[in-house]
Simulated scan of single mutants.
Amino acid sequence: MKVKPRDISKQLVIDLSHEQGYRRGHIQGAVNLSVEKFDFTRKVDVYGGITRGVLFFKKKRGGYEKMIILKKNKINKQAKPHLMPKQGGGEFLKKKIVAIDEIYEVMKNLGLNNNTSEIILYDNSAMLACRMWFVLRYFGFRNVRVLNGGWRAWLKSGLPVDEKATVLKPGESLDLKPKRSYLLTKPTQMVFDVEHKTSKYIDARLPTAYKGLLLFSNNYHIDGAINIPCTELMEDAIFKSVHDIRRTVETTGVDMEVDRFICYSGRGLSGAVDLFALMMVGADKVSLYDAGVNNWRQNFDSKLSADAEDFLKH
């Protein structure tokens, strides 16, 4: 089979660090997309059939008491995935959603067009790069790659560095692509899956969070979840070899050739790293429960909506 050569001249390299870090130095030709400019850590979620709530801690004698205010939303069978703003400020549900058009507008302004050969993402820890990889892949973008080792590996290799900001040249044409809905497990689908035990759940957080040893955190894990911290799959932002990653995963007792995997974390960062690593080493039935462990804690008794049936089709 003849492999088509990569057209480096048509790459779009994206630096995901803060603007100050980008100004101090970046890969030549890279454009900057910080979370301040476009918060790609927001949830890829779906309205309808979801219980949303605000978790807070009420101080009492001898410690703190967990308090959760819940509000159930009516099931909306026509609900569609969107990038959603972060929850906060005591609000149960943000009415303002960011339509799919926003991410296409952002990428087009960075210079992406139909002729772009590939998108290269990098940061310092690989977490932001893997998160953005998931978001772009979910919304249909193709040929998205993560620079292994990120910025630090680039510096250690003595490769060219630039301090001058790259002049943006917005893309002239960018066609919309179908979403890859199979990459996302919705909250209602997660409830359905746990009830029927059709998947293996991968908790990508640190063991202290997984075991509930941290206060003021999502110190809870889904019953039956396997803890594979994203830090065990890489060293200094460099992913381990395919052999080592597969061995780390398989020592937990799962079958990478047969099992379906659902990765999750708190904010969707470390969960996206595990998702990326599993797909990189050959797992093809893997998705991200982007709503995360806090959503599960608030919704484990939610009723299923019709869209849960869609999960079994993938």
Rank of each mutant, 00 (worst) to 15 (best):
N299H: 11
A99M: 07
L110C: 08
V135G: 00
G266Y: 05
V146G: 10
S117R: 07
E195W: 09
K58W: 06
Y47P: 03
L159W: 15
L174T: 10
S270F: 00
E102V: 02
E257F: 03
E235V: 08
R6E: 13
G25Q: 09
K60Y: 06
H196C: 10
P229S: 06
G89S: 14
V35Y: 11
I100P: 03
L213G: 02
G89T: 08
M279Q: 13
R61D: 14
I8R: 12
P81C: 06
W151Y: 14
E65F: 02
G53K: 09
K211N: 13
S17C: 11
L233S: 00
V13A: 01
I100L: 13
K77H: 07
R52F: 04
L184H: 02
D259W: 09
A283D: 05
V35R: 12
G292Q: 06
A79R: 09
L136R: 00
V146P: 07
N109L: 12
F141I: 01
Y122K: 08
D274W: 00
I68L: 11
R24D: 15
S305K: 10
G49W: 01
L33D: 01
K10W: 05
L184V: 04
V106T: 14
L176A: 09
M1G: 14
V167L: 15
N73S: 09
I75D: 07
K60S: 11
L12P: 09
R24N: 14
K86H: 09
E65V: 04
R142A: 02
H26V: 08
T166R: 12
V44Y: 00
V167A: 15
V135P: 01
P207S: 08
F57W: 15
N114C: 09
D162M: 12
G171V: 07
V191I: 14
S117G: 12
D290G: 04
M234S: 04
I68W: 05
L269S: 00
F38M: 01
Y220L: 10
E309V: 14
D45W: 02
G48Q: 05
K2W: 06
H243M: 06
I226Q: 04
L110D: 05
R247H: 13
A277Q: 07
P85A: 05
V258N: 15
R137C: 03
F139D: 00
W151G: 04
N218Q: 10
V31I: 01
V35M: 09
D290I: 02
R131E: 03
I238T: 11
M190I: 03
D307Q: 08
K66V: 09
G89P: 02
F92E: 03
A129I: 04
R23C: 13
A209P: 02
I238V: 15
G282P: 05
N299R: 13
N294L: 13
G90M: 02
R52I: 00
D310H: 13
